[in-house]
């Protein structure tokens, strides 16, 4: 599978409405992120996960990741991947390769420790009493 991008990503259009801290995966993001998301989608196949593990750079080449996407992947930078058009439903497969749980991913994006992130989730329990 190859990226359909002929000449690099289109700039993201301004969203008509923003929700703080909440990425909206719209057409502009989907256009920008196609290569990265296509790579992540390929990880449904265990052979592809193994190929990525063996040679991460070569695997990113195969999907023609943009420099911004490559850097974010290299740095395990989740917010960077999202800024480069990554969608969390696909990125979750890459996070699995990195051995990250959804709590790890949440903590990384919020700048909290994993313990603090989990504690914040648990704190909602009181509201349900």
């Amino acid at each position: 599978m190859t990226s359909p991008a002929a000449s690099g990503p289109a700039p993201r259009r301004p969203m008509s409405r923003t929700i703080p801290g909440t990425p909206i995966f719209d057409g502009a993001a989907a256009t920008q992120g196609y290569a990265l998301n296509a790579m992540c989608f390929s990880f449904n196949d265990p052979a592809n996960r193994e190929a990525f593990r063996v040679d991460e750079d070569a695997y990113c080449d195969r999907f023609a990741l943009t420099p911004q996407q490559r850097r974010a992947v290299k740095d395990r930078d989740i917010l960077g991947m999202i800024a480069a058009g990554g969608n969390i439903y696909y990125l979750a497969k890459l996070a699995g390769i990195f051995g990250l749980s959804v709590q790890d991913v949440g903590a990384a994006q919020t700048g909290m420790s994993v313990e603090a992130f989990k504690a914040a989730l648990l704190a909602h329990q009181e509201e349900t009493a």
């Binding site: 929700i19 909440t22 917010l79 999202i82 949440g106 994006q109 919020t110 989730l121 909602h124």
Partner: peptide, 9 residues
């Protein structure tokens, strides 16, 4: 799951 608001409930 995503963004700076991850963990929101």
């Amino acid at each position: 799951l995503d963004g700076e608001r991850a963990g929101f409930i």
